[in-house]
Nucleic acid binder design. Structure first.
Lengths: 114, 114
DNA sequence: CTGTATCCATCCCGATACTG
DNA sequence: CAGTATCGGGATGGATACAG
């Protein structure tokens, strides 16, 4: 079943950003334009293949802009679109939320188990 | 995890919320406390097994609180913790962002269907 | 009703090799 | 340098059966 018409936009956006890499790549790109090999250096553990696929996915979603200067050797640059930039603070907010979680463990939030 | 801890909290929080179901379950639970079978009805396409696993994951993360009234038949209720509640608007913001994306495509190519 | 365990198909992803 | 294609192992998740 490939047809998933999400009723909830949340479901869709999580499909896009949910994996391990998308948000990380966005994070690194928020720093400025980078080349393919720069991103490889930033993320030493991502495979060549996955970097390509993730970038393509983000590009298709309109989050990442790809610029191909085809000379030799080839040179391609990746950067965030405006939509991508707008996404950064939202992702950041999730990070802050997570930070507040680990700072104050869930134990303390349990209220009077009667 | 097997490897080093993520430098970026984003990476961690996405590992948690990234899949198809977590955010949806949180959405449904933001509505109020629900039983296992209620959630099954809300999400007709999730399998029994995955519902259990996802709920357990969210519970372990301190997002969901599980209350087991063990009578007969058994009855278990799920609800959001305070941390979970605080997460809702953040997820919502992502949904809004996504909504603004589809509303105004970055690339106006396909719009004109003459 | 809720939860656990098992089996098994599927898919994701890394490694590798090749192209321009 | 950047991208594509292919293969195979391992993780992921559905179906099912069973337990409390």
């Amino acid at each position: 079943m490939k047809e998933l018409v999400s009723r909830c936009p949340i479901e869709e956006v999580m499909q896009l950003l949910g994996g391990r890499w998308p948000s990380l790549l966005i994070y690194y790109l928020s720093d400025g334009t980078k080349r393919f090999s720069d991103l490889q250096r930033d993320n030493p553990t991502i495979s060549h293949k996955m970097l390509t696929l993730e970038l393509r996915k983000l590009e298709d979603a309109g989050i990442v802009r790809r610029t191909d200067f085809d000379g030799y050797p080839r040179r391609v640059e990746y950067g965030l679109t405006e939509d991508g930039e707008r996404l950064v603070p939202l992702i950041d907010a999730l990070g802050d939320w997570w930070g507040s979680m680990v700072a104050a463990p869930a134990d303390a939030t349990v209220v009077a188990a009667d």
